[in-house]
Structure formats: structure tokens, C-alpha cells
Design a protein around this nucleic acid. Structure first.
Lengths: 201, 201
DNA sequence: CAAATACGGAACCATTTGGTCTCGTTACTC
DNA sequence: GAGTAACGAGACCAAATGGTTCCGTATTTG
């Protein structure tokens, strides 16, 4: 998480005089941006929409961020990171993670496609998204099931993200979160069985 | 493949008089649109670009299609369908298909993200893409390896499409087509082994 | 040859939208 | 209280671009 700017070059030469920035406004704007990101996707957000939802004026936005992309990049970085549950049942932990991913794809189908679209249009967005895209929590969970050196961990981790995204975009009719979760977990169990049978590397 | 319009309501009440439409122009426009689709992705195509590349005027475009989306929808439908090779080595056939998919993701990383973006903006594009999205060739090949009733065929077929797309969008540094091909084929072989060991359903 | 329509090219129009500016007001420091 | 800057709201500006129209020309039928 990156904190909002406390000073802006050329705008606030003397930060002791005048009415101070309202931190609550900054927060409201970031929250509005994040909400819209989830609801309609990046490419359908207009600055006017963000301002209205935050109960703010566009001036309040551009006083804080130089461009729309800078605002949304910060909103993206502010989005909460996933954390992996750790119980003594690794497969149950995996199922929780996969289910979460599948549910997101089902309930907020516009988020990731919108991000893909935005990453193509703006380098700052591209950086922000890639920076936040850390699948190590998924790889760790898979490692507990398959063993730390299993050759398919990276691919399986990507699969847990890629398949829900893909189905949301191209075959929304096969996007039942529960079914998809079981398909994916079942596949991973199958891989685990295969390895166990043959003996690991 | 859908043929171009031979008559337009309100535009050509009498199709025997006047200079006829030039079929070569129609073709050049569709080709230009398809090329741009592969090169820069849907959302960066401007009608002016299509016209220039086709050596045509914008008038020639709008004489044939009512909107930009209609033109590009037809260009999408015109794109050649994949066909599955069938030898007596199903795994080799699979590798060919997967490699093709991975190479596309590597060489034309803007196509599919651009389509996703465009599907969000226009229903006609959404229809055209989904109509052309048939993974049965991949499922057939997988069925030859895993058996026709294997429970993971649908998921694995989606994986062959989704993972290259995902990596192209989010982790381009891990987008080596050869490596990715082997990862995916190896996973599928692993699943096949697992099934064979346990006996099929 | 006349009528009709397509052609490329360029000017043109209309809409959308990111970003700026202004106004009257409010909240802070000195 | 004086000075300064943030606030919401809305007018405003500028760029991009989908789509139309017009021009002079070429190609068809009759």
C-alpha cells in the first residue's frame, strides 16, 4: 500500500497555511474508485463517476492525482492482498483458495477483463497490477500437497487463476463456481496421486 | 464464414444500374481489419487505419457495414478455424495443438486481450467471438489420450487456452512458448498416468 | 452519351471524456 | 480578522474518433 501524496510540487509551497487536505476525501475517492473497479471494470470508469460516488468534485481528484490512471493505479495497489489459510488439511486450504478465486470470477466478471484492457492502455496500470500479482500463497499451498519440488506447481498455480478468468470471459455458461472449484481441486488431487504412485523426483 | 452483403436496404434500390461494388475492395478491407486485429488488438483499431491499410476510403467501409463493430465482427468470423492433426501418436498431436496455442500467445499477445476488451464493449463482437470459440478439436485429441469419458477433459481443454492467455497478460516473463508447451503436455501426461494407474471410471 | 453508383480522399460534424478553471463557501494558521 | 488553500458544483476546453458528406473520377447498364 502506498500512502497518498502529502505535498504536491507547485501546488502547496507552504503546507502550513490554508485549509488542509481532507484525508476522509482522499479515502472516499479511493474507495469509490475501487468499488467501481469491481462493479463495472476499469474501462468503463469515468472520472465524473468516481467523483459523484465519492461525493466529491473532480477538482478534489486532480488536486491529488495527476491523471485518472494514477488514481486507479493507487486504487489497485490498495486492494487487499489474498492470504492463504493454513490448517492441517492442505487440500481443504486449497479448496478454500480456489473457491475464492472462482467466486470472484463469477460475482465480479468485469474486474479482471477490465484490468487486462487497462493494462494495455496504460503502463502505470500494467505495473500496478503486475506488482500485486503474487501467486506465492497458492504455490505454497500446492507445495504442501504435492511436495516442494513438484514440477507442476507453477503451472497449477497459474491454472487456478487462469481458468476462472478464461471461463468468465469466453464461456460464462460453464462458470459455476462450485463445479469449477471441484473440477480444479480434483485435477490437482489427480496429479498428486500420479506423483505419489510413481514416486516423486 | 459469412458472405458480405449483396444489397443494402435504402442504399441500392436497383442493383442493375451504376458501378457495382468491387469485391476486391471488400476483401481488402476485411483483410486489413483482420491483420490489425492480430497486430495491435481490437481496441486500438481506428476505422481510418483500416481504410488506409486497405487502400480504401472510409466511405467504402460504411457503404458495406453499418458500424465499425459490424465490420470487425465479420473479420473475426472470417478468421480461419483451427483444425486438429490426427496421427497415430495422440500425444504428438496434442503437443502440436498446444504449441500452436502457446506460440500465438507469444507472437500475438494483443489479439485475445483485445478481444476480451472488445467483447465487453459490443454485444455483436461478443457473439462473434463466442460463436467461433469451439474447443471440440482439443477435447477430441485429449479424449484419444485419456479416454472419451475422462472426467478432466473439459478442464484440460480450457487449460490449454487459458494458461497461455493468462501468462501473456500477467506474467509475460514466463511466456516462453516451448517451455510452456512442455509444462502443459507434461501435466496432461501426468494426469493420464494417474488415471491409468488407478484404472479408469 | 446519360444515368446511376462506387471509388479514394478530405473536409466536416457530433459525441465522449480527460482535464482545467471559476465561483461561492469552508477550514485552517498567524 | 487577514490570508490562504481546500471543498463541491458546474461551466468550460481540447483531443480523439465514429460516422457523414462532398468532390472529382471511374465503371457499369441502357
Amino acid at each position: 500500500m502506498i500512502s497518498f501524496m502529502t505535498e504536491q510540487p507547485g501546488r502547496r509551497p507552504d503546507n502550513t497555511s490554508g485549509r488542509p487536505r481532507d484525508a476522509a476525501r482522499t479515502d472516499a475517492i479511493l474507495t469509490a474508485a475501487a468499488d467501481l473497479l469491481l462493479e463495472v471494470g476499469f474501462d468503463r470508469i469515468r472520472t465524473q463517476d468516481v467523483a459523484e460516488r465519492a461525493g466529491a468534485g473532480k477538482g478534489a481528484i486532480y488536486r491529488r492525482w495527476p491523471t485518472k490512471e494514477a488514481l486507479l493505479a493507487e486504487a489497485i495497489r490498495n486492494m487487499p492482498a489474498r492470504k492463504a489459510p493454513v490448517t492441517d488439511e492442505p487440500v481443504a486450504d486449497l479448496r478454500t483458495l480456489v473457491a475464492d478465486r472462482c467466486q470472484s470470477a463469477e460475482e465480479k466478471p468485469d474486474l479482471v477483463p477490465g484490468l487486462i484492457s487497462a493494462m494495455r492502455a496504460d503502463q502505470g496500470i500494467d505495473d500496478a497490477v503486475k506488482e500485486g500479482y503474487d501467486l506465492s500463497y497458492m504455490r505454497d499451498t500446492l507445495a504442501r500437497i504435492l511436495g516442494p519440488d513438484h514440477p507442476h506447481i507453477d503451472l497449477l498455480a497459474d491454472i487456478t487463476q487462469a481458468v476462472p478468468l478464461f471461463r468468465a470471459a469466453f464461456t460464462p455458461e460453464s462458470l459455476d463456481a462450485r463445479v469449477m472449484t471441484e473440477e480444479i481441486v480434483s485435477l490437482i488431487e489427480s496429479v498428486a496421486t500420479s506423483t505419489a504412485t510413481r514416486g516423486s523426483v
